[in-house]
Design a protein around this nucleic acid. Structure first.
Lengths: 163, 163
DNA sequence: GCAACCTTGTAAGGCTCCCTTACAACACGG
DNA sequence: CCGTGTTGTAAGGGAGCCTTACAAGGTTGC
């Protein structure tokens, strides 16, 4: 019943292991992205590509989900607009607000990014075992839905935690 | 055989999930650390507490393992020295070098930190299932040993990758 | 219909963490 | 000892994020 990690001295803390894995995997993604025609997209831009879809989202909305300030996201969006990946259109419902949405190029980049992520994930499934990676994803989705629902609105209604 | 992630649209990339989990877990650790008598220790200081042990390590050595520049680690060590957690002693074998090691207080903080990490890991084992967390750690250690051996010298001789 | 208040986005400046360039002190092989 | 490599330091910069402050537009109550 009592979970006991191994030797306390010769042992890397779990958050550290998770971070190492995250960075290793993300590095593979970035390597491929940088060889593509979207090499000017930096990790920071991710908060926009990750959340924006279709009609667009308000700055405030993105900031909340990404757990960043409006100012920070505003700067990131400025940059994406200048690079031709995003645009701001006036919100018909509120003259203060603007809807941030992707340009055609932006949507192409988003689609390409998703494909790359899937590719890298398949590569790891091959390297470490399909069942293990599937189990990893399942566990992590449960954790994300429980511990960071703001960052994972997609999973909010999907994972009922413990049935 | 072919590993297929779910719906490509309604789906968070694996590196993102890993990062969310890492940050959630790390946040629990920091929360407890900040309520302790070591509340002035910041995440950056981790690279020293993580690698330094006993006799001490050279700056160059720490920098290599942490994948940081010597200057960056130097600054971090300056900070830890000023706060009373670390000290530099001249290396008897090389008059240019200094061995960075922990003070008594530093070692106490290190021990406390390790205990906290273990505690948080047990808490997650209880929340998400002991077997699943054990499997998670096992997989992540294999990944760390394969994809980032520099960051995990402890695992270098432990995991024979794929037998 | 307007005063008080909230929300949306922007502006300006600062902080942390990390990097690059440059260098001085020492080690070591010829 | 004389070049060459290594150890640590100094100085300055940049990316990414934050805080404080505000102007323009909405909303609510009376």
């Amino acid at each position: 019943m009592t979970y006991v990690p191994k030797d306390p001295a010769n042992w890397i803390p779990l958050p550290g292991l998770l971070e190492i894995a995250s960075e290793a995997l993300f590095a593979e993604f970035r390597e491929e992205l940088e060889r593509s025609e979207y090499s000017d997209i930096r990790p920071t831009h991710g908060c926009v590509f990750r959340f924006v879809q279709g009609e667009g989202l308000r700055l405030t909305e993105i900031a909340e989900r990404a757990k960043l300030t409006k100012q920070s996201v505003g700067e990131i969006v400025d940059d994406l607009v200048q690079r031709g990946y995003a645009k701001r259109i006036p919100d018909p419902d509120d003259r203060r607000a603007k809807l941030i949405c992707l340009t055609e190029r932006g949507e192409a980049a988003q689609a390409h990014g998703r494909k790359l992520f899937a590719k890298v994930e398949r590569r790891w499934a091959q390297r470490y075992g399909a069942e293990r990676i599937a189990a990893l994803r399942e566990l992590l989705e449960e954790i994300a839905a429980t511990d960071a629902p703001f960052a994972a609105p997609e999973l909010a209604h999907a994972e009922p935690a413990a049935a």
